[in-house]
């Protein structure tokens, strides 16, 4: 099964749509609720990161019998220091984004905690690619 979603930077009104669709899909194929919850947290944070930091992005979801693999690829400023960005509490979000309650610096660590595997590649001034994998059994 494959799903694809587009995200525009700055448009928070659509954040959560991909997570919600993936959640429905995983429910439909009877994945354990505990696993669905983890996938949803990781994917939602990824969506919000694209909204908050990038110009635009795409989400590619692949589900097979054993795992769900999600690539989140954006065009944007990229991440200068990935180690720093992974630290809980570190954030480069704007004041407007923080006022909404985002930008607490917990996004990437929430993703890491909830993904079984996570990888992050980024090029400054080009963009970022995050891959998260969760095993369904």
């Amino acid at each position: 099964m494959k799903l694809e979603f587009a995200i525009s930077g700055g448009d928070f009104s659509r954040a959560g749509i991909a997570s919600s669709e993936v959640k429905k899909m995983l429910k439909k194929i009877n994945v354990e609720p505990k696993i669905i919850k983890r996938v949803v947290v990781a994917l939602y944070e990824a969506e919000v990161n694209v909204c908050a930091h990038a110009y635009k992005g795409n989400i590619f979801v692949e589900i097979d019998g054993t795992k769900i693999k999600i690539d989140i690829i954006d065009k944007g400023p990229g991440i200068e220091n990935i180690d720093e960005a992974m630290k809980e509490g570190y954030s480069t979000a704007s004041d407007a984004v923080r006022e909404m309650g985002f930008g607490a610096g917990m996004g990437l660590s929430n993703m890491k905690k909830n993904a079984d595997e996570m990888s992050l590649e980024s090029k400054v001034d080009e963009g970022t690619k995050v891959t998260i994998i969760n095993y369904l059994k």
Binding site: F12, G16, S20, V41, M100, G101, F102, A104, G107, K113
Partner: peptide, 29 residues
């Protein structure tokens, strides 16, 4: 919102001062 996303549970009542639409995305997820 990330705190709520990461640490709240199903069946919780969420108390907040945030009023925008993303609150419902999180409450629903």
């Amino acid at each position: 919102l990330s705190d709520v996303m990461g640490f709240s549970s199903e069946g919780d009542v969420w108390i907040t001062l945030q009023t925008h639409k993303n609150v419902m995305a999180i409450a629903s997820l």
